[in-house]
Structure formats: structure tokens, C-alpha cells
Write a protein that binds this DNA or RNA. Sequence first.
RNA 1: GGCGGUGUAGCUCAGUCGGUUAGAGCAGCGGAAUCAUAAUCCGCGUGUCGGGGGUUCGAAUCCCUCCACCGCUACCA
Length: 558
Amino acid sequence: MPRTLVTSALLYANGPLHFGHIAGCYLPSDIYTRALRMAGDEVLAVSGSDDHGVAITLAAETAGEEPAAYVARWHAKMRETFAALDIQYDIVSGTSSCPPHADLSREFFELLNQNGYLVRRAADQLYCESDKRFLADRYIEGTCYECGYEAARGDECPNCGTWIDPLKLKNPKSKLSGETPVRRSTTHWYLDLPKLRDEKIGAWIKEHSWKSNVAAFIENLLKDVPERAITRDMEWGVKLPSSVGEAGDGKVLYVWFDAPIGYISFTKELMEERGTPDAWKDWWQGEDTNLVHFIGKDNIPFHCLVFPSMLYGTKDGYVLPAEVPANEFYHLKGGKFSTSGGNAFDIQAFVDSYGVDATRFYLCSSMPETADSEFSMELFIGTANSSLADTIGNLAQRVLKFIGKNAEGVIPEVHEDHREEMDRIILTECGTLEDPVEHIRQFRFRRAAEAITQNAAAGNRFVDMMAPWTLRKEDPVKALSSLATLCEWLSWTARWMAPVMPSKAQQLWTMLGQEGSIHDQLAPGLPEAATWRTLTPGTPLGEVTALFPKLELPEGEA
RNA sequence: GGCGGUGUAGCUCAGUCGGUUAGAGCAGCGGAAUCAUAAUCCGCGUGUCGGGGGUUCGAAUCCCUCCACCGCUACCA
């Protein structure tokens, strides 16, 4: 059985999730996971938060909190947002709270070191004598040596955009103490990416087939691969392994190094909870695993170059990613979704107003798959009404209500004399059918959304062709056969909807009088004449209600 | 400044390893039907494929250049 390990970008625990994160990474991973499971694949879905890093400590200090408490707050918020959107993972953990994470990160460090992929070097950095610590670039402010701007940050000048070397900054000041720091030498470890590239990863990247927008991004990547520092002088983070001795005192692993290892440590944590502590190896070191990283485009270098280099460099049998279906960015009316308040809106409130499945469907149909795209309230309302209420919802309504009035509210039986004809009409003559699951498998989420609607439209065509309201008088048996056929069609519609719109699919399934979870149904490709009818005639329908309400554009929106 | 993206029908976008009359959905117009949340079905698209130049038998699709809009700039998918 195909085994797929799905990861979703670790969210930096420094702000709320917004529609950009959702449409770019978390929703596609959830839809993908659900679709593969319905197709019968074995899937494990892992995500969590990235809790370390200077930005966290800085923000926590500003907020007057300890980093751990600060991170926990955003982590909880993230879980709420996932719940609001019906986004499910086997585990959502965090790099600061996951028990095996620190040890596993140190193991990576040691293996890479043993295998000769780490370089140790001394360099000068700014040190604050009053705080007795080295200052990360972001903790430093000073006068830009290029343009003279007085509030340049230690990493970049906001005025002229120069990438600042903090050692050259004029009048450097610590943002924390206000003191003038001094130069002091410190030792750091660097990941030897050039060596890893030349030895293995460069060739691997070249022969790998990437999603087209990812391929464009990677092309330039290999030309200039620097060694990258993987340690920092600070407290918040994963301490270095004791094997490096005093040289590691006061240092932690740089956040980018331990973050992706989180995918693995979270899997470990999950398997320990399940009482199968070694099972994580099947997923991460099993040859038959398809590793799929869902990320945004800004994470491409990490997931296509750096993390694979780390995995390979351990020489410990880790699989390399099979797919990195990175999305581009999703914007709000041309502006960027802001994590710092501003124009970001409350996802929970939005879902409460318009419905979780309509929201998921629209995000799916407008996903930034191959290029940046944007959220439009007007298009959201339009899509929800025309695709969901008018096409899918109305199909269910007109068929099931008709059965309620004219066929005693039970699933009718298709008569042998009509079966073949009706199979032919619905399966081939009402339009070209496309399999949403197959599109999802190929990471064509927009087209999957379109396919769900179009397949339902074929059902509407069948209704009009059969005109059961006329047939009822002329040939009642044929009328019942057409309605039986339409019930089967609705059951397939529910299956097609399920990965994208889990709760509405379930609602439709229940309206059809079916028991149990729609998500336990298998959806193996498109319906075929010989096997596609699965419902039991005579089954009473459930209560028939409007599946999708019509939505209205709020005042002042356009 | 650097890097990158986008510019195709009113709107949102497909299509582009060069090759028949450039496509879809939505909106719009006309018609049919009346089971249904006035929901459906059928028919209707001559658009300088941002401008200019080049390569070619042939370019929306490759190259150069210009214009417009936008994003990123090191960790916010």
C-alpha cells in the first residue's frame, strides 16, 4: 500500500494564522491527506509550531512574557484556527514542547559533525557587557553606514535597504540595554552546504522532478550555496550536545536548523504516544515512504536544499522528499495578509458567518497554485452561491424533495430495462467527468474544486433530460429509475466533496439515509457502469434541508 | 539597491519544452423548462494573448528591450 508522509510548514509561533497560511499550506495539506485516505492510501499528517529563534525572544520580551509562555499562547491559537477550519493532523506539536525534539536535534548535529559536514570557525560579534551576552543582529540598532539613517537594524537598514554588517554599524546600541556593545570573538558551527551539494544533493535536485513553480525557484539556488551558521549565542533554543564540551556553552542551535527536525521529532512523539516508539522509523527511514512537504514559496530553499542536505548528511537512512508542492502567496485585495493585526481578519468569525466548507471550497478554488493570487470577498460570495448553493445544493434539494413528494421518501429502485441506458447517459452523455481525487493527487487543487462542481452539473443535466416531473405521468417506473440513478449520483457527489468540504459531504451522506462516516468511504476513481451503484433501494432518506445557504455580500464590501 | 513574479475575453484564471479556427468558470444577452434555495438546461465570445524589435516556414509560447502593477529582501505559508 502506498505510504505517504505529509508535513505542513511549521508555523512560526509569533502571530496568528491568516488566510495566506491556510490557502498556501495548511488547507492543501488537509485536502491532500483526506483525498489520499479516501483513495485507500496510508497517510500520516504532521504539523506544529516553530518555537525558537531570536524573533520569538524579542517579541516575548516586548510582551513581558517568558518565551515558553509566549509560544504556548500562539500555539494554542493555531490549534483553534485549525479546528475552526476542520484542518486535521495526526499530531500538532511544537519544537519547544515536543519531548524528543531536543535530543533528536542534537543527534542530527552530532551525526553531521561526525560525518564531516560541520565546520567550526571563530568570528567577531557584538557583545553587550552589561547583559553579558552576544547580541543577535536584531537586537542591535545604529546609524547606517551607507545612508546615515539613524535607526538602522543590525540586519537591514529600513531606509535604504542595505543589508547591514552589524560590525560596521556606526554608534551601535543594544536594543535591550541601550549600552554600546563591544567586539568579541565567538565560535560557531556552520553547515557545509557546498560539500553536501557537490557530494549528493546537487545531483539529486537536478534529477528530481519538481512542481513547475518550484523548479523555477530552484534553478538559481544551486549556483550560490554558502556555508550556513547553525549555532547562536542565546538561551532560548536547543542546547548544543555535551560532546562539544565548553565550546558549546551558552549556545543553542540556530532556529532554522532545529525547526525542520521538528517534523521527525513530532512523528516520534506521536508514535511514543501510540505505544509503538520505533514506528517513526518506518515513516522517515522506510524506502517506500513518499515524503511530501507542504510549504509556501519562501520555504523552498529550506525544503529543497537545506533540509534534504541535513537528512542525507546524517547518513542514517532518512528518506528525501518526494514532493514539495509549494504554493505561491495569497493576498488580500492586493495587500498582504498581515500577522501584526491591521487588515488581517478573524478567521473564526469569518467561518461562523459564512460556513467552514464554503470557506474551504473558495480557498481551494482560488489557491495560489502556480502564481500569487488573492482573496476577494465578491468572488467568494459569487462562488459560494453559483457553485455550491445553485449547482451542488440545488441538485440535492430538487432530487431529494421530489423523492419525498413522489416516491415515499425512500431510495427508489432502478428497473433493469432502464439501467443500461441511464448508466450511459449519466456517465458519458451529461458531460466529461473528472476525478477530483486525481487532481488533488497532482496538486491541482483549483481544478479539483472545478471538477466537483462540474460533476454535479452533469447531475443537473441528467435531471433536465429525464424531466421526472413529466415522466412520472407517462412512465412512472422510468421516473423512479431516473431518481434512483440520481441518488447514486448524489452519493458520488458527497464522496467527491469530502476532502474539500468534509462536513457538508457528511450532511449530504446523511440526507441520503446513509449511516456512518462519509470519510470511511473509499473513492476509487471515477464511477464505472458495472460497479458504481452502491445504494440499497428502499432506504429511507434522512431529513432534507438546504445544503448550502445563499450568501450575501456584506454592506460596504465590493 | 538586489532578487523574483505578473501582465491572455467585463471579472478570476488555464494554456506556453513554437505548429490546426487561443480555452474554462463567472458575469452578460437570447431561448426552453418549472422538480428545486427564482435554483436548472440549451445557444451566443473576431480578445492588438502589455508595447516594440529579433529568431523561425510558423510565436501568446524562444531571445532582446521598454512599460505597468506587485511581492520578497533572510526567515511570516
